[in-house]
């Protein structure tokens, strides 16, 4: 087994998606890049176990989520210096707001558990079983959280007003 080759190929194929997933989960881009690299380094040190796992993606996402939650526990997130103004949660004119910012803002309004299953399932494209494995929860719970998340987003006025959202008649 070519550990280095497999690892490099995996990073090249999935690295960007992992970073984007972390951003959609609520981290800034620099933080997301740091955490993804940390997670991948941890995976490398146990790459034989990663490849032996029934599902590599679920395994890696689990490591990433662990890294993210560990990071959250370590830091106090009440105040952070930032060069940019925070995104407003209320769009004054929905049609002038970029879809990406609106979607990220809508995701932030979701409870964390719902946000996580939504991003893993519909952005990272994990199956329900993979999502369940990554989160250590039953498949039924994944389904119910997805259902609730979709309902929440359907009721999100800012998303409903998006020009590209075909949920509005």
């Amino acid at each position: 087994m070519d550990t280095d080759g497999d690892f490099t190929a995996y990073v090249a194929a999935r690295g960007q998606t992992l970073v984007r997933s972390a951003v959609l989960l609520g981290w800034s881009l620099p933080e997301a890049e740091d955490h993804v690299q940390t997670a991948l380094m941890r995976c490398y040190s146990n790459w034989d176990r990663v490849t032996a796992a029934a599902d590599i993606d679920a395994y890696v996402y689990r490591v990433l989520l662990n890294a993210l939650s560990t990071s959250r526990r370590r830091k106090w997130w009440g105040e952070r210096p930032t060069a940019d103004l925070p995104e407003t949660s209320v769009a004054d004119a929905a049609d002038q707001v970029a879809v990406g910012a609106a979607v990220r803002a809508a995701l932030k309004r979701l409870p964390e558990q719902q946000r996580t299953v939504l991003v893993l399932r519909y952005f990272a494209d994990l199956t329900e079983r993979q999502t369940a494995t990554a989160l250590g929860i039953p498949v039924g719970t994944v389904k119910s959280r997805l259902s609730r998340a979709l309902t929440e987003l359907s009721n999100d006025d800012h998303l409903a007003d998006l020009p590209g959202n075909r949920s509005t008649p």
């Binding site: 990073v11 090249a12 690295g15 960007q16 998606t17 970073v19 984007r20 997933s21 951003v23 959609l24 881009l29 997301a32 890049e33 993804v36 690299q37 991948l40 970029a98 879809v99 990406g100 910012a101 979607v103 990220r104 995701l107 939504l118 991003v119 519909y122 952005f123 979709l150 987003l153 998303l159 998006l162 590209g164 959202n165 075909r166 949920s167």
Partner: peptide
């Protein structure tokens, strides 16, 4: 629809290849 929205939002994130 949620896949399309997330896809759009994901593309909007300027993540460089690692």
């Amino acid at each position: 629809q949620i896949r399309e929205l997330l896809e759009t939002a994901g593309q909007d994130i300027a993540a460089e290849p690692i």
